[in-house]
Amino acid sequence: MQFDFTEDQHEIKRTAKDLLAQRSTSEKVRTAAESGSYEQSLWAELAELGWPGVAISEDHSGGGLGIIELATLLEEGGYALANSPLLASAACAIAIQEAGSDAQKKEWLPKLASGQVTGSFGIAGQTFPDLVDAAITVSVSPDGSSATLIDVSAAECNAVETIDPTRRYGEFSEADQSGEGMPGDGAAALDISTVIVSAELVGICQRALDMTVEYVKDRKQFGRPVGSFQAVQHRCAQMLLNTEAARSVTYYAAWSADADRSLLPEASALAKSSASKAGVEVTGSAIQAHGGIGFTWEADVHWFYKRAQMDAAWLGGTKTHRERLTRIAAAQAA
């Protein structure tokens, strides 16, 4: 047993972190959030590096790597709060790979893997990240039992404003009936997207924790750093526990997607249950530990809180996935 990344995987993660630290600075995140538009050059660069198709098979012009590698990229994307359609487009591509017909794969995977077009993914009737500018979307039923491929240009959909301006969201109109059926494994498509958004949440938690630790070491009240007060210290310890717990189960779930699919349904529920809770609690705690400044628009912590809220709710939050965990365990016990 080796519950750690391989050297190659570490290298991918390190490279992604370094790149995004330069390309997706706090200033850029703010500019993108306040203007409601992404910087196209970042997406072009990520596409050039092969990020959107990292886990797509080489037969379809992807990178041929696994969900673990994709998860590390999304974790770092979350850490930097990068403004790009990476999550949505990678989720769409994975869904087509899992659930699509040969013709659907042949038509869409190379374009999605190269970043030539972007895609989206979501549960029917709910919120779709980066929908309006996408060329193609996979919509699944809540349990993943059916999946539909939707040509966005032919569909009735529109942008929705959410609390999270760091990412653009959309929804289909209720009347929309477009799309073609997908013959493959919609449940696996849903589970894997659940895992990769969990990875993004882990990155968000780590960043919120790092920002908080830095702030409470620096900020002085009563003549000493607030980070020397036990109440603040214990809050930070709890943030670490939540972050590391989410990390353990998310890495496990990513591994199960690559190595043992029989574990994936339970593992993805574990990951999302834990990461949704951690995301909301850790970023909320970060605002509290920053005190008054944390509640201002000017400080950066709120971007993380807002993205975490959307990620936590997308594809089901803690309560949805805990219920699923209990259902799986009860079926085994019965």
Partner: peptide, 28 residues
């Protein structure tokens, strides 16, 4: 009750996996 049991399932699996992750870190 179902929610609470789900919480316990999440916690026990987190414990198992975090313990193994910790061990891998020390060994490596």
């Amino acid at each position: 009750i179902s929610q609470s049991l789900g919480d316990m399932l999440e916690r026990t699996e987190t414990l198992r996996l975090t313990a193994y992750r910790g061990l891998s870190t020390i060994m490596k």
